[in-house]
Design a protein around this nucleic acid. Structure first.
Length: 164
DNA sequence: AGCCAGTCTCGGA
DNA sequence: TCCGAGACTGGCT
């Protein structure tokens, strides 16, 4: 697994690439300054391509634009249920939101709203998999594993209104 | 506005 | 296995 930072206006995100594609993306973490990271020159040829696509997509999303291309995502770590949820999240267009109940209904298990919340929290690739576009019922903010500030910030960038 | 039970998945004991 | 905890909901007070 190759780890490499992606500098953005919001700070350095940390991307991890497996042999299948982008395996995870972490929000900037202030305390991790000197951890060993792969230099971009050490990435395999396909990984360099993925890295370019990831960087581009990330910056586009952070500036409120829809990404024109995403790298392949390696979601093999998740359970079947989680993969279904993550896939459903990818269907939400930028600037729109869905509720946990709507996601649950979309994957055919309308009562699994709470489980959907758990799956969102377990999402290894926030931002690219738009977990921030999922709100609780009646446009309430709900929660966010990376911190509610991030959720508010990302939603604001997409021009989304929410309660509270 | 706040409390409560119903519901489903996941991870640890 | 079993059990408890969640980024939830809808109904009731």
């Amino acid at each position: 697994m190759l780890k490499i930072a992606i500098p953005t206006v919001a700070g350095p995100f940390l991307a991890c690439y497996s042999t299948q594609g982008l395996a995870r993306l972490d929000f900037p973490q202030p305390s991790r300054q000197n951890n060993p990271e792969t230099a971009s020159a050490d990435l395999s040829a396909p990984a360099q391509k993925w890295h370019a696509a990831t960087t581009r997509a990330l910056k586009q999303i952070l500036s409120g634009q829809p990404p024109d291309a995403l790298p392949p995502l390696d979601l093999s770590v998740g359970t079947e249920f989680q993969k279904r949820v993550w896939h459903a999240l990818c269907q939400i267009p930028i600037g729109k939101t869905q509720s946990y109940a709507q996601i649950a209904a979309a994957i055919g298990q309308p009562k699994a709203t709470r489980a959907v919340g758990s799956a969102c929290g377990a999402n290894p690739i926030p931002v690219l998999i738009p977990c921030h576009r999922v709100l609780a019922a009646h446009q309430r903010l709900g929660g966010f594993s990376g911190g509610l500030d991030w959720k508010r910030k990302l939603l604001a960038r997409e021009g989304i209104e929410f309660a509270g």
